[in-house]
Amino acid sequence: MTASSARRLVLMGPPGAGKGTQASRLAEHLGVPAISTGDIFRANVAERTELGQQAQRYMDAGEYVPDEVTNAMVADRLAADDATAGFLLDGYPRTEAQVGELDRMLEAAGVSLDVVVELTADVDELVKRLLGRAAEQGRSDDTESVIRRRLEVYSEQTAALVDVYDARGILVRVDGLGSVDDVAARLLDALS
């Protein structure tokens, strides 16, 4: 695998598994944009757009933003020029309906996903990480009760997607615990 290859990846894993950190490093290595729905939502919240205000209510409760809002934002972003040669999606898809919508978006563009990477991590370690991040960043969406709810929602809704992509033969699992460099090395190993 080289950075010049057209790559279309999805990076999955529970909140706090290090997706954001690893997505930006991996995307830079591959020469594709890292597309994070969380970043898109937070930008809209910061700009107090109508979409941002809708998203804020769901994010503060530890729930997912509704599919129709999320799908429209992702479709828009994947249509951007910098995503034509490839992309790394972080935080999307999160539901089986979103998997179907992503399939339709990619099919319309005449492309498909190359690989789905699942970062795995222990729940108690994730809670510890997210509480630490909340303290550092003052994030209103990272209280312990909201963190635990987000992990429950992930388990209820998103974990099922792992089975969908595993059945397609494009799923790779990578241990998300350890130093940033160790996890990055395991990711690159898994993709080569």
Rank of each mutant, 00 (worst) to 15 (best):
R25V: 15
K19T: 12
L30I: 02
I35A: 01
L30R: 05
I40G: 01
V45A: 05
A43G: 10
A17F: 12
I40S: 00
A23Q: 05
N44Q: 15
R25G: 13
T21V: 05
L30Q: 01
P15G: 12
P33R: 15
I35C: 04
P15R: 08
I35H: 07
D39L: 02
G31L: 08
R42D: 03
L30M: 03
I35R: 09
F41M: 06
T21A: 12
E28G: 08
G20Q: 10
K19Q: 06
S24G: 10
K19I: 06
A23G: 09
H29Y: 07
S24C: 13
R42W: 05
G20D: 11
G16I: 11
P15V: 11
K19V: 13
V45M: 02
A27S: 13
S36P: 05
A34K: 04
F41Y: 05
P15S: 14
G38V: 06
E47S: 10
I40R: 12
F41H: 06
L26I: 06
A27M: 10
G18L: 03
G18N: 03
R48C: 01
Q22L: 03
D39F: 06
S24R: 15
G38S: 07
A43W: 10
A46H: 11
R25A: 15
S24Y: 04
L26K: 03
A23M: 06
E47D: 12
V32S: 11
T37E: 08
A43S: 14
R48Y: 04
E28Y: 02
A17Y: 13
A27W: 06
D39R: 01
A43R: 15
A43N: 14
N44D: 14
E28D: 08
R25Q: 15
G31K: 11
V45D: 04
A27R: 08
G16P: 14
K19C: 10
T37H: 08
A46T: 03
G31M: 14
L26Y: 02
I35W: 02
P33H: 12
S36N: 08
V45R: 12
E28A: 14
